[in-house]
Design a protein around this nucleic acid. Structure first.
Lengths: 131, 131
DNA sequence: AAGGATATGTAATGTCATAACATTCAAGCC
DNA sequence: GGCTTGAATGTTATGACATTACATATCCTT
């Protein structure tokens, strides 16, 4: 079980949970000015902890953050993201076969993986054609 | 066939080709001061073109760039990167099964992919144990 | 030679992230 | 209670990555 969240962690988590799309740290900060947050570090520190706990994911290709779509099972499987460049929405999924293939490669090359990023950018069903 | 490279593109390409590990745009810029480059944009513009041509890849999780390991066949398959966080070296590979699985997901969800990023960060065989 | 597309040069600015240091808060122990 | 210790917080400054806007030059085509 995750320990209870601190005040700043709670604020950041709520902001991300209520967002339709990924948010940058600075956007989160802007939305929390009224709650007393003033400096980027306050947000980055909270994001670090939340990411460690598996409640938040960082999207590397966007330099932004999303709430985990499966917040209850903070599993440590491989997660892939499909990111719509039009509406900004992100779908989160995992695939055992992909995981097995990548594991196979790393084993064969004596590579010890620490963190794997899979991000597909494009247009979601609703946005294809619009863009 | 790729058109011939321009002066700045050539400079940037040579810098990346001669590097052991990915370089940031600003590192490239620093290495090219003596060749007359002065502003980040000169590097970013060259990188954009080189990336379009498939000669250079951007590593999203590093905000850095590498020369393509297969510069002759500028294929457009799915490419994955294994990035050693100790020595910095990057291995580039592709896997048809992974590609098929991700394609399957996108088709099933009517998602039209534009660019896919797969980056495995960890430690390479030579560095495991050292870190 | 003229026009258009591409490449270049330069300054300024915007965006993302962390270092360094001081202070506060909560939990355990004497 | 008073003390220690570790985590979280607050604040300033700075570092690292990337783009906007505008001016100039180069090359190719007609």
């Amino acid at each position: 079980m995750s320990a209870d969240l601190t005040r700043n962690q709670t604020l950041v988590m709520k902001t991300l949970s209520g967002a339709e799309a990924p948010l940058s740290a600075y956007t989160i900060l802007d939305r929390l000015r009224d709650d007393g947050l003033r400096a980027p570090l306050q947000v980055y520190r909270a994001l670090d902890k939340l990411t460690e706990m598996g409640l938040v994911h960082r999207l590397e290709s966007l330099n932004a953050f999303v709430a985990c779509a499966h917040p209850n099972c903070h599993q440590q499987e491989l997660i892939a993201f499909a990111i719509c460049e039009t509406c900004g929405k992100v779908e989160e999924f995992s695939d055992e076969v992909v995981k097995d293939r990548l594991d196979g490669w790393t084993r064969a090359h004596s590579f010890r993986p620490a963190k794997t990023t899979i991000e597909i950018r494009g247009n979601c069903g609703g946005c294809v054609g619009k863009a």
